[in-house]
Design a protein around this nucleic acid. Sequence first.
DNA 1: TCTGGGGTCCTAGGACCC
DNA 2: TCTGGGGTCCTAGGACCC
Length: 431
Amino acid sequence: MDQSGSYPRAIVHFDGDSFFASVEQAKDYKLRGKPVVTGGERGAVTSLSKEAKMLGAHRGMPMQEIRRVCPSVIVLAGDYTAYSIYAKRMYAIAKTFTTKVEEYSIDECFADITGLNESRGQSYEEIAEAIQEKLELSLGITFGVGLAPSKTLAKVASKRNKPAGFTALPKEEIERVLADTEIYDIWGLGGALSTRLRGLGVITALDYIQKSDAWLKEHGFAKPVRDTWLELQGYPALTLSTGAHAKPHSVMVTRTFTPPSTDKDFIFSQLSKNVEGACAKVRRAGMKASALSFYLKTQEFTYHGVQLDLSAAYDAPPEILKAIRARFDEVYAEGILYRASGVTLRCLRGVDTVTPDLFGAYAESQEKEGVFRAQDAVNRRYGRNTIYLGSSMEALARPDAKYRTKVVRGFVPASKDGKKSLDIPHLGVVH
DNA sequence: TCTGGGGTCCTAGGACCC
DNA sequence: TCTGGGGTCCTAGGACCC
């Protein structure tokens, strides 16, 4: 059947309902039908089952408050390994229908099913619902599903009938639906942009698509804003990234330390720990980094950092730490209270594409590499931080070290300055 | 509720070159 | 000569996302 008028492209968005809590209930039947929240490991809720929501618990509530309004609540620590496994199953199921699947996040994916209606002899709606049914039956969790001519509209659609809903949003329905969608709820328009738009009288997404291209230019809105504007009109401006080789472009490890500190050695050791973690991630991805940036965050929430290039590509801490140490004083100042540090490894390449530098630094690092491989193996087997570098010793020896080395996830509370709060669970560090 | 952790992409403006 | 114009590349920083 010809649906090319309603769907010049047919994009489906799948969004797992209460993903982390739902996975917990799928794993353990005893949790089904009960109020479950995750986030116990850090005392702040990260995901709530629908039963917990029905009893009045909200995301962002302190754990004590949750227990008060909902005494029967079951609080669990996040099991990120399990969530990743469920995410991979989700992608795999979607891929049995089409290869054009974007693995967008731990609980979401997009599929481009354009043309499948002809080849399968089914409507796009039927196909989207068939995928949804297969996901729900195979995983034991429900999904919000949206079908639309663009990614941005598919996101709008999947939000509309949660949980376990399906919404089709063909071109003919765009105006009706966008009239009751606030600009603030549009994917791609964050706190800053939606506040600006509202100041210009744009309240709903319909107001937004009725503005002209000239109007956007006149007010200095740039490409991402225009792409969103096109997408909302049903013109796909964003393509799916379906690359099977979804390798990261950068890898970062940052950690807040409590209490904040002025101690130079302690702060450097924190950074050293960040570097170890980042190197381990890079090795796991089978990559090496040839550039990096590191920063310190003060108690006043200002950032001080530098970006630098490495003499070659590395996946082990020694040379990286050497480079950071050489420039540490550019960001560290005596007497300032620091609350966090972080490192980002950049210019990542697959190990096979790395060209050795002229001065032998690469060859030297190759010799040491065996040591870090062994370390990875031991840490995998006996738990993290079984083996660590001397320079990270101080960080690990602190009394609260066990909290700092834990997997943490969190959320940003809704704030008065118009910044969007996080309302979807997301992945922390998976080990 | 004083505010976590990990990513991506875009752009203004400076450096540099012809 | 003291005065141009224009192009490219890079980076810091800002915006967004989950």
